[in-house]
Design a protein around this nucleic acid. Structure first.
Lengths: 123, 123
DNA sequence: TTTAGATATAAGTATATTCTTATATTAAAC
DNA sequence: GTTTAATATAAGAATATACTTATATCTAAA
């Protein structure tokens, strides 16, 4: 019924569907929206989101396993950043999301991982 | 912690997340990929997909309830078409998906709802 | 006005998802 | 080395999701 070519087209559809499923969670989608502007460390997300540290960690693991983010360990801290140069459909979705300034307008400060940029300033 | 503006930004994120969740199923995503090119009736999808008629119907209901497709009844048949003029992020995702020709290259024919265009011809 | 075809809804089930708490790992500081 | 902070993994629970079969609704035609 469906052979070679259609199968590969189906595989593409399935891969994109998996990626869309990852964008289909409000917490993960907000993480990605924040990651548009800069890398973030786990401890920052723990302060911003209303979920536990293991919850954050599990979300990032999912995103990493699908190569949507990459991680970089620096000392005790692990920083995540976007990894979507080769995924224009994901880029397009993120482009239409609000960024850090709008999302965190009323969020006071990040007090963990003492990096200088960690204070979220409302310009 | 998060007030007015941030709340509305959050609502936007939540809405997009719900939409992405709908694109996060391989069957629905393929339905949307097919709908890029023309409207399809339920009976056609029943022949193309490996799920039951109620399964198709439930997928379309979800897509319709989020205004991603619209339906039009003509006689016994119900035709669905895209309704995403105001949803550029969804447009962008669909733009990167294979179309009917590639997806159904090895699919013989649609034998239901006897509309003239129903035979899927491999050019 | 009965019958047949197309679609929708209801109810139930198996699986997936997203959290949680408890515990393990890793790296720095003492 | 021991302690402390940051992150990851494991296990389990509550809920959501995507199917199924059975049945209802709606339309056209006989």
């Amino acid at each position: 019924m469906k052979t070679e070519v259609a199968v590969s087209a189906m595989h593409h559809i399935e891969e994109v569907a998996e990626q869309m499923k990852l964008l289909g969670d409000k917490n993960r989608l907000m993480m990605l929206a924040l990651l548009k502007e800069r890398e973030w460390c786990v401890c920052e997300f723990v302060e911003i989101f209303d979920i536990s540290q293991p919850g954050i960690s599990q979300h990032m693991r999912k995103l990493k396993s699908h190569r949507i983010v990459k991680e970089e360990r620096r000392g005790q801290w692990v920083y995540y950043s976007l990894n979507i140069e080769d995924k224009p459909h994901i880029q397009a979705v993120l482009r239409h999301l609000p960024g850090r300034e709008e999302l965190l307008r009323n969020f006071d400060k990040i007090v963990c991982c003492n990096q200088s940029e960690s204070a979220i300033s409302a310009p």
